[in-house]
Design a protein around this nucleic acid. Sequence first.
DNA 1: CCGAATCCGCCTCGATACTG
DNA 2: CAGTATCGAGGCGGATTCGG
Lengths: 105, 105
Amino acid sequence: MEDCPVKYAFTVVSGKWKLQILWELNQQDMIRFNELQRRLAGISSFMLSKSLGELEQNKLIIREQYNEVPPRVEYSLTELGKAIHPALKMLGDWGTKVYNECQES
Amino acid sequence: MEDCPVKYAFTVVSGKWKLQILWELNQQDMIRFNELQRRLAGISSFMLSKSLGELEQNKLIIREQYNEVPPRVEYSLTELGKAIHPALKMLGDWGTKVYNECQES
DNA sequence: CCGAATCCGCCTCGATACTG
DNA sequence: CAGTATCGAGGCGGATTCGG
């Protein structure tokens, strides 16, 4: 979006659930829709479906659909999806510092 | 906020202008209100003031006020404010990859 | 020059109900 | 099991106006 890669990265993972979804997928590689919904306590199937769709569009995750009965769909991270985690870790470490700093005063 | 440092970091720099403000301050260390407003084309004084106030609360920037006529207020990054930039660079590099990947298809 | 107060439109989120 | 359709509520951004 526009001209700033950082902003673009933010928009890609913005939204109330995207980070958690990425986190869960990183723990498991390969997870089913309902299983994911169970782990993300509180998310509706609508929001989950929408978030997964956007992440798939941005090539962060892969959707694999098996035409069985009952239907089965599995989600997993792409290389791109895995590659964000080092950056998120750095941000997390920094976030911890900010948090501690703001508790003092 | 809550229990996730990454989420917390995101909320701290969330908002339409925070990243740009951090960027401008990183270019200049020490900048005045109006000068900053001029560089962030399109921002209202309301949003700028509000964003700066929140960044100050989170200890990312320092506000130095000189009681002169006319009044002068200067903003600069704290150590914490400077420390986010490596993490943002990583995210930016990743964002570039995502962008390129999505242009192909 | 710097910023606070108020009001308003839009977009995201989510509850509910329904489908293959 | 894995979604889609629809509708409504709330919060953020922004325009405008006013004060020190």
